[in-house]
Simulated assay, not measured.
Amino acid sequence: MTIFEELTGATLFIETRRRAAEAKGRQDEEKLWRYVRAFNHFVLITGQIYRFEDSLEGKAPAERPSVSANLGKHEGTLAEPAVELLLKTLDETPELEQKQHARLLIALLDFIAGLDSSMRPRTTSSINWTMPRWPSRTSPAKRKPRPG
């Protein structure tokens, strides 16, 4: 399986988890899944996917991955709570494929945290390193009908 296919599968995993959190009214958890999804998309659309793949080479897969000190450099952001959510998901998930998605996403956040600041996605000034500045999508129920 290619890294692109793995990240695409992780996108589906993220969305399933985000929707479950939304359905249960867990807004903080839903926000963290959106955060993870934003960085997954960032790597896919900016070409960083190849650097991410290179960063994975030579690393032995661990049952429960360790998190590097890179994330500690970003105190006060959603990075640490997102990794905690992924580790919790990893511990609670019995399915091997979902465990692999969680491990991949932990490695992804660690990779992004280790990027030079010029390579990281730009963020809004009010929220430090939390969500890239991409247009937010509104749910179909919140969209205004088109005239015509």
Rank of each mutant, 00 (worst) to 15 (best):
residue 23 A to S: 13
residue 86 L to A: 04
residue 141 A to K: 09
residue 113 A to W: 00
residue 138 T to F: 09
residue 146 R to E: 00
residue 118 S to F: 06
residue 2 T to P: 13
residue 145 P to T: 00
residue 80 E to V: 15
residue 59 K to W: 00
residue 107 A to R: 14
residue 73 K to G: 04
residue 107 A to Q: 11
residue 78 L to T: 10
residue 99 K to F: 00
residue 44 L to G: 07
residue 132 P to I: 01
residue 66 S to C: 06
residue 37 R to D: 15
residue 113 A to N: 03
residue 121 P to F: 11
residue 124 T to E: 10
residue 58 G to E: 01
residue 20 A to W: 07
residue 106 I to S: 05
residue 113 A to H: 03
residue 89 T to W: 03
residue 83 V to A: 10
residue 95 E to I: 01
residue 59 K to T: 10
residue 69 A to N: 06
residue 123 T to H: 14
residue 36 V to W: 04
residue 68 S to K: 11
residue 142 K to M: 12
residue 82 A to I: 12
residue 103 R to G: 05
residue 42 F to Y: 11
residue 54 D to E: 15
residue 4 F to N: 12
residue 27 Q to W: 07
residue 64 R to N: 08
residue 103 R to Y: 07
residue 133 R to F: 01
residue 127 I to A: 11
residue 33 W to L: 10
residue 27 Q to K: 13
residue 117 S to V: 13
residue 96 L to K: 11
residue 29 E to N: 07
residue 41 H to A: 15
residue 141 A to Y: 04
residue 27 Q to H: 10
residue 143 R to N: 04
residue 129 W to N: 12
residue 130 T to S: 11
residue 10 A to W: 03
residue 85 L to I: 10
residue 51 R to E: 13
residue 98 Q to C: 05
residue 107 A to C: 09
residue 133 R to M: 09
residue 60 A to E: 09
residue 3 I to F: 04
residue 25 G to T: 07
residue 120 R to W: 03
residue 107 A to S: 09
residue 12 L to W: 08
residue 39 F to N: 12
residue 65 P to E: 01
residue 17 R to M: 15
residue 128 N to M: 09
residue 110 D to L: 00
residue 135 P to M: 02
residue 93 T to G: 09
residue 119 M to L: 11
residue 19 R to G: 08
residue 90 L to N: 09
residue 49 I to G: 02
residue 95 E to S: 07
residue 107 A to N: 12
residue 5 E to A: 15
residue 55 S to D: 04
residue 43 V to A: 02
residue 20 A to C: 11
residue 41 H to E: 12
residue 33 W to I: 14
residue 113 A to P: 00
residue 98 Q to K: 09
residue 135 P to V: 04
residue 17 R to N: 15
residue 39 F to S: 04
residue 91 D to M: 08
residue 21 A to L: 06
residue 20 A to P: 07
residue 116 D to R: 06
residue 59 K to E: 09
residue 106 I to F: 04
residue 139 S to T: 15
residue 19 R to H: 14
residue 114 G to T: 05
residue 66 S to Y: 05
residue 127 I to G: 10
